[in-house]
Amino acid sequence: MARWGMAADLDRCNGCGACVVACHSENNISTVGDEQASRGRAKHWIRVERYWEGDFPDVRLKFRPVMCQQCDNAPCEPVCPTYASHHTEDGLNAQVYNRCIGTRYCANACPYNARFFDFFNPSWDKPLQLQLNPDVSLREVGVMEKCTFCVQRIRGAQLQARTEDRALRDGEIQPACVQGCAAKALVFGDLEDPESHVSRLARSPRGSKLLEDVGTQPAVTYLARATQV
């Protein structure tokens, strides 16, 4: 069984936001309009956090793409009363929309604020509904949603590999953000395979986990030079 993980090289990230756009279009994430966005209802399964370091004029800008960290000890999971949020065998932090009754407890428990709530039914202006991805379900009002590591692509690739009766190749699965990253800052793969690109990066001395001291054991490794936070 695999353990999916990601590595984000912060030294490569230039904050372009292509991952955000790719994620939105792959996962049918509805945009909520400027008015609702200004009221804090925007949904971005991946976001690029910007931080400034140093005092003016010696200011440096830092970017950090943050998505669901697919934690091993995910705080969002045990608090869910209906098992909507739980752990799959291949280490994904699953969010089952059917089971979600919208307590939003998981979002409160998530230290990364990586979970988003559908405040309204999503809508797309015509003809934008034609670009919806048929492999991803549309979330209706009142459920939580979050980054799935593009589980539809994982399942699709697994199915393809099984059809061709072979093992998955490293790098075969690319979540939308990884695919969209021009700087190749994001790497996705199987952490249980010690030779995979992502596990080599996860072992890198430059690597660290976000909010490691909370004890969530995330599957995302952030790589940065030692001077960086």
Partner: peptide, 12 residues
């Protein structure tokens, strides 16, 4: 929908 309330990310 819940959007008529003041609840928002991240204060759910």
């Amino acid at each position: 929908g819940y959007g008529i309330t003041g609840i928002k990310w991240p204060v759910y």
